[in-house]
C-alpha cells in the first residue's frame, strides 16, 4: 500500500514534468549557406506563438525549434515559413524533450 502510494506520487511528478517540456523540431534545409540570407528564418519562426526558441546551424544545414509546452507547429506551416524565407525543406523530425 505504501509502495503503491509512492509509485503514484512518482508517476504524477513524472507526468507533470513531461507536460512542462515542449517539443524539439529539427528541420533540414537546403540552400541555407549565408547567415545574412537566413535572418528571415529566425524572424519568421520567432513570430509564431508556438515557438519558444530558434537555433540555426549553417554547418549542419539545420534549423532547430523548441516549441512551447502543449503547442504545435504543423509541418505545412514550417514548410510555408521556410519557402517564404527562400529555402527548401529537406526533412522534419520531432522529438519530445
Amino acid at each position: 500500500m505504501k509502495t503503491t502510494g509512492k509509485l503514484l506520487i512518482l508517476g504524477m511528478m513524472l507526468s507533470t514534468l513531461a507536460m512542462a517540456s515542449g517539443t524539439e523540431v529539427k528541420i533540414g534545409v537546403n540552400g541555407m549557406v549565408c547567415g545574412f540570407c537566413a535572418q528571415g528564418i529566425t524572424k519568421k519562426f520567432k513570430a509564431e506563438n508556438a515557438v519558444e526558441s530558434v537555433d540555426v546551424k549553417l554547418s549542419e544545414k539545420k534549423v532547430t525549434l523548441i516549441l512551447r509546452e502543449k503547442q504545435d507547429l504543423p509541418d505545412d506551416r514550417i514548410k510555408q515559413i521556410l519557402t517564404d524565407s527562400g529555402f527548401n525543406v529537406q526533412k522534419i523530425e520531432r522529438q519530445g524533450i
Partner: peptide
C-alpha cells in the same frame, strides 16, 4: 529562378 542545394544556392 533559384536553386537551393545542400551546400550552395
Amino acid at each position: 529562378k533559384r536553386w537551393n542545394n545542400p551546400d550552395s544556392q
